[in-house]
């Protein structure tokens, strides 16, 4: 009895992708792919998603460590807060980012007056929006890996004279590396596909903030075939990344 809904579920997930492949303008694909706007959007997407992932790693791994390894009051609350961007509609995230980091925002005002830095509607703003939405994926994945890691190895390192930082760098991190990589892949994929927060916080300027998803949406209104091509590129990038990492890290 479970087979029927299972097959339906599978069809529901696979058919749209198949549709994409069927409707793709294969004959004109090379020319369309070589168009400067496409390449520009693709480059911007890859660069911002990669930087956003780096930011998430830099901030998210220590945060995951804090949540997994340090007892402090309100830890459960902090963990709940970390996962909020996961369930928050991205557009709302974008609005929230504008309110805090926008020109008139709480921190944005200070950033501009002190450093002359403005984030909204810049490429840096794209990175901020993507990191905001994608970081929970990394934190949750790394925290899970930390909880699953045998802490006695850390104790063994301590008896050998390793400080907390050395233990983390030379024992904990290498042992949870698969979890970190898995988290980073999820994070990167999420950042690559980010739409709502990006368009709200960073806008839609070709070359600086128009990432692939934005380009897809825009093309759909004017030139549906271009949208299909762009979608295919996003799909291909995702599949290639997933496949290349799967054997080494994700199995």
């Amino acid at each position: 009895m479970l087979v029927v809904p299972a097959v339906l579920g599978l069809a529901f997930l696979v058919l749209p992708l198949a549709g994409l492949l069927v409707r793709a303008p294969w004959s004109t694909l090379p020319q369309r792919l070589a168009e400067p706007q496409v390449l520009e959007a693709l480059r911007l997407s890859l660069v911002t998603a990669t930087i956003a992932t780096a930011v998430c790693l830099l901030l998210g791994v220590p945060l995951a460590w804090l949540l997994a390894r340090v007892e402090f009051p309100g830890r459960r609350l902090v963990r709940a807060l970390v996962t909020v961007p996961l369930v928050l509609p991205p557009v709302v995230g974008g609005v929230a980012l504008l309110l805090v980091l926008g020109r008139r925002g709480l921190i944005g005002q200070w950033l501009e007056s002190t450093f002359g830095v403005t984030l909204p509607f810049t490429t840096a703003g794209v990175v901020v929006a993507e990191a905001f939405v994608a970081m929970p994926f990394l934190v949750i994945s790394v925290e899970g890996a930390l909880r699953g890691a045998d802490r006695r190895f850390e104790e063994a390192a301590a008896t050998l004279g390793a400080s907390r930082m050395t233990v983390f760098r030379r024992v904990t991190l290498p042992m949870i590396m698969p979890g970190v990589v898995a988290g980073a892949v999820l994070c990167w994929a999420r950042a690559l596909g980010e739409f709502g927060a990006t368009i709200t916080f960073a806008g839609n300027f070709p070359g600086t903030t128009r990432t692939m998803p934005l380009a897809v949406y825009l093309a759909l209104e004017t030139e549906p075939e271009a949208a299909i091509v762009l979608s295919l590129v996003l799909l291909a990038v995702s599949v290639i990344i997933l496949a290349s990492l799967r054997d080494r890290w994700l199995s």
């Binding site: 045998d150 006695r152 190895f153 104790e155 063994a156 390192a157 301590a158 008896t159 050998l160 004279g161 390793a162 400080s163 024992v171 290498p174 042992m175």
Partner: peptide, 16 residues
């Protein structure tokens, strides 16, 4: 622990 002049061998060794 890291500042004590000790060496410890664990039951299942815990080699990294």
């Amino acid at each position: 622990a890291e500042q004590r002049p000790i060496g410890m061998v664990f039951q299942d060794y815990l080699l990294f």
